Simulated assay, not measured.
Amino acid sequence: MDATPQIVAYQPSHRDALLDLSIRAWEPVFPLLETDVPGFVYESFYP
């Protein structure tokens, strides 16, 4: 497996990997935002 990152056009087959990456990247950020945004906004995006 090549560990070199590559930028490619999005394909529907990338969806699961992209969602996994996004969730892992944002997971530590969401708790920090809870007090800075209105509750209804926070609850719309997390968990």
Rank of each mutant, 00 (worst) to 15 (best):
S13P: 00
W26G: 10
L32I: 04
P38Q: 13
L32N: 07
P5K: 09
V29F: 09
I23K: 09
F30T: 02
G39Q: 11
S13H: 04
P5T: 08
I7W: 05
I23V: 14
Y42L: 03
L21D: 15
A25C: 11
F40Q: 13
L32V: 05
L32D: 06
E34S: 10
R24K: 15
V8K: 10
P28M: 12
D2N: 10
Y42M: 03
A3V: 06
D20T: 12
D16E: 09
Q11N: 13
Y46P: 02
P31T: 06
S13G: 03
P38M: 08
A25M: 07
T4W: 01
H14E: 09
F40E: 15
W26L: 15
E43F: 03
L18D: 07
M1Y: 03
L19P: 00
Q11P: 00
L19N: 15
S44G: 10
P12Q: 02
V8C: 02
V41D: 11
L19T: 12
L33Y: 11
P47E: 11
F45Q: 12
E43R: 14
P31N: 05
R15V: 08
D36H: 11
G39H: 05
W26R: 13
H14M: 09
D36E: 09
T4C: 00
L18W: 00
P31E: 02
R15H: 11
A17R: 08
Q6R: 15
V8Q: 07
Y42I: 04
D16T: 06
D16K: 02
D16M: 04
T4Y: 01
P12N: 06
Y46G: 02
S22W: 00
Y42R: 02
D2Y: 01
I7K: 05
A3I: 08
S44C: 03
I7F: 13
F45P: 03
V37K: 01
M1V: 08
A3H: 08
L19Y: 15
I7L: 13
E34H: 12
P38G: 10
I23A: 10
P5R: 11
T4R: 04
L18A: 06
P12I: 04
D36T: 13
Y10C: 06
V29G: 02
H14T: 04
Y10S: 03
Y46C: 11
D20E: 14
F40N: 10
P38D: 15
A17V: 14
R24P: 02
Q11H: 09
P28Q: 12
I7P: 00
A3L: 11
D20P: 00
A9M: 05
A3T: 05
T4F: 02
A9F: 01
P28E: 14
M1T: 07
E34R: 11
F40W: 15
E34F: 03
V41G: 02
P47C: 08
Q6M: 10
L21S: 14
Y10L: 11
P38A: 13
E43D: 12
L18T: 03
D16W: 02
G39M: 09
F30A: 05
L21V: 07
V41H: 08
